[in-house]
Each structure stands twice: as C-alpha cells, then as structure tokens.
C-alpha cells in the first residue's frame, strides 16, 4: 500500500521531468529514423523496417530504464527529499520498490504507445509479420526492461550516477553477448574458475530478443513465453532484493 503511494508520486514526478521529455523525443525520433532506414532498403522493406522499429523501442526503453531510474533515485538522495519520506514509519524497501513500480508503470505506458505506432506502421507495409509477433516482441522488451530497471536501481544504490549508468549499460551489452562469451570460454585453452561464476551472475538478455523472429512473422510458443516471464521476474526480483538489502544498510547522510 505504502509502496503504491510512493509509486503514484513517482509516476507524477517522472511526467514533470525534463529528461522524460528528452527521452520521449528520442523515442519518437528513433521510430521515425527506423521508418526512414527501412525505406532505403532494396528488398524486404517491411521486415527491415519492423526490425529497426523494434530495435528503436528497445534502445529507447533501455535509455529510459537507465537514465531515468538512476537519475531520479540519485537526485532524491542528493537533494535530501528522501530524508522527508524515510523519516516516516516506512521501510526503505517500500520506498525503493515504490520508486521501481512507478518507473516501470510509466515505461509500460510509453512502450504501449510505441507498440501502437509500430503496429500502425507495420500494417501499412502489409509484410509477413503478424500483430501477435509484434506484441510478443514488444512484450519481451518490456520483460527485459523490468530486469534492466532493477539492475539500474541496484547500481544506483551502490555507486555514483555515472558509474551506475556505465555499469548497467555494460551489463546490458554483456547480457546480450552472454551466449557467445560462454561459447568462447568453452573452446578456450586457459579456463579460469572465475569466469563461470561471473557469467552465472549476468542475466541472459538474449532470451528477450525476438526482434528478428518477429520481423519474419514467427511467434514464440506459450511455454517459451512463460519461461521468459518467469526468468524476467526472477532476475528483477533478485536485483531488487539485493538493492533493498544494500539500501537498508546504507548511511543516508543527506
């Protein structure tokens, strides 16, 4: 209940943020640019446009997760407004989870709008892709956003603004290359024990990538989707849990 109240205020706060409108502008430009790039291709215009559109949705949402989440949370700590909230009989976890829910809710709304735009553009091309495959692809990006936002909060609690943003971005990149990194480890001669430990801590974000599949009009079966949902929730819960533990033990000297 308290977390939901914090979430509601966070949502309203984000709507009044300048960075929100900057990122929104970026999202609109990215969609427009994808449409333009798709037109430049010789063949498979519909497929390539959709691929670019989905990539634009993903990149925009990644930037939303990282810059809005970290920026908002850090600013609360630096300006001291967090002290006013935490002086009330609420737990730090409620505050953090409330912030997370509020941000994710706003991201959901933005993604929904982007999905509608993508579907509208896709229908104008009459390509192979189906509405369901586009919805699935955007849905999986949302699941990825849940994990990334939780990661961003974890690093925001434990590091400075720039460090947290860089590390989260790096983990986003590594998370998408995880499979090939594991492959290279398996065929390498000198194997260090630390490598598998590190790789097991990095979530496999490729699970949420079905952009190419969607552009060919294929869909995932419900079991695959179910496991993607479970995996996303588990990863997000893990990062949020350790973020809450760290935040509960952190000195707030604002």
């Amino acid at each position: 209940m308290i977390a939901l109240r914090v979430a509601w205020i966070t949502m309203r706060e984000l709507i009044f943020e300048r960075v929100f409108y900057l990122l929104l502008t970026f999202a609109v430009l990215a969609l427009g640019f994808s449409l333009l790039l798709g037109q430049l291709t010789y063949a498979e215009q519909a497929k390539i446009t959709l691929d670019f559109l989905l990539a634009a949705v993903e990149v925009s949402m990644v930037l939303f997760s990282i810059f809005m989440g970290i920026g908002l949370f850090k600013r609360e700590l630096l300006l001291g407004s967090v002290a006013m909230v935490l002086s009330k009989p609420i737990s730090r976890s409620s505050f953090l989870i409330g912030k997370y829910i509020g941000q994710v809710a706003i991201q959901f709304a933005v993604m929904f709008c982007m999905l509608l735009v993508t579907l509208a553009i896709q229908s104008s091309f009459h390509g192979d892709s189906s509405v369901l495959s586009v919805i699935q692809a955007v849905g999986l990006i949302f699941l990825e956003v849940l994990v990334l936002t939780a990661m961003a909060y974890f690093f925001a609690v434990n590091a400075g603004t720039i460090t947290a943003a860089i590390v989260t971005l790096c983990l986003f990149a590594v998370g998408h290359m995880r499979e090939s990194l594991v492959y290279h480890y398996n065929i390498s001669i000198s194997r260090s024990w630390i490598w598998p430990v590190i790789m097991s801590l990095i979530p496999d974000l490729e699970i949420f990538n079905m952009k190419t599949i969607a552009s060919y009009g294929y869909t995932l079966d419900w079991i695959q989707l179910f496991w993607a949902v479970v995996y996303s929730f588990c990863c997000a819960a893990f990062f949020l849990f350790i973020a809450c533990v760290c935040f509960a033990n952190k000195d707030i000297a604002t």
Partner: peptide, 26 residues
C-alpha cells in the same frame, strides 16, 4: 522531522504534500 533544507516534489500542491506524507504515516 524537519530537515535543514526541506525539499518537496515541486509539482504537488501544499495540500497534496500533506496528504502524501499523511498516507506514509498511515
């Protein structure tokens, strides 16, 4: 608690601020 430099969400009205903090006080 009254901090040295109190900061509130600037988009809220005085009444909304008190309602928000009152909810946090249950």
């Amino acid at each position: 608690y009254l901090p040295e430099n109190p900061r509130f969400q600037k988009f809220l009205s005085a009444k909304e601020v008190l309602f928000y903090y009152g909810t946090l006080c249950r």
